[in-house]
């Protein structure tokens, strides 16, 4: 089995009306053996930028540290916070730097992007393990349950969902997808991001 499936785990992000949501499972496994049901793979990079890092667990930690370092350097030099669209390019170049010995991670990003007028617009994107960016208008998925996530999300998602409806949609999509995946599950966490607040909820789901 591929190294991408070694530890299991899945992430999904969706666009709503003036909001975005990003959600993941909490499983860390060693092939079919469950190790932890408290392994978070979504990280807050800025106040309005969240990144999910499903894939090889050792690289989840390493890549998170690497991205945090580069983001901090940018913040210090530029004296401003990084926007999500900039951040996904940082992720992309960080991954492509290791083109011939990649981090086994497929990052998923969700954030509120500042527009020239000073307002915020929802933004999601994902990349493959060598940094090829996918700018999706609706939703992005990654991880061992990605096929299932695509199927359910394609059926449930609709444009312009309000934060509470977006939360319901992303939660149902994630829970039902991971319940059909042996390598994902064991709890779930959802972040709903709006321009002035982030709501994090831990979901009760099947623990088998």
């Amino acid at each position: 089995m591929s190294i991408m499936q070694y530890n299991g785990g899945s992430v999904i992000a969706m666009v709503g009306k003036d909001c975005v949501a990003i959600a993941s499972d909490l499983r860390l496994g060693n092939q079919s053996l469950g190790i932890s049901s408290n392994f978070e793979k979504i990280f807050a990079m800025t106040e309005r930028t969240y990144v999910g890092l499903p894939g090889l667990a050792t690289d989840v930690t390493t890549l998170h540290e690497q991205l945090r370092y580069r983001l901090n350097m940018y913040t210090i030099k530029e004296e401003r916070t990084m926007e999500p669209e900039t951040f996904i390019h940082l992720v992309s170049s960080t991954l492509y730097e290791k083109r011939w010995g990649p981090y086994f991670i497929e990052p998923v990003l969700a954030g509120m992007q500042k527009t020239p007028s000073g307002a915020f617009r929802p933004f999601v994107a994902s990349t493959d393990l060598i940094g090829c960016i996918n700018f999706a208008k609706d939703f992005v998925v990654a991880g061992t349950a990605s096929e299932k996530l695509f199927g359910v999300a394609e059926g449930l998602w609709e444009p312009d969902l309000e934060p509470e409806d977006l939360f319901e949609t992303i939660s149902q999509t994630l829970l039902n997808a991971v319940d059909r995946d042996a390598y994902s599950g064991w709890g779930a966490v959802v972040h709903v991001i709006t321009k002035d607040k982030v709501v994090k909820r831990t979901l009760k789901g099947r623990m088998d």
Binding site: E147, K148, F150, G151, V152, E154, G155, L156, S171, Q172, L175, N176, A177, D179, R180, G205
Partner: peptide, 19 residues
């Protein structure tokens, strides 16, 4: 071919799983 896309959707909509 698309069993993995459709079956979890059916679990949710027919069996009302996670609802």
């Amino acid at each position: 071919a698309a069993q993995s896309l459709v079956q979890p959707f059916l679990d949710n909509q027919i069996y009302f799983k996670n609802q």
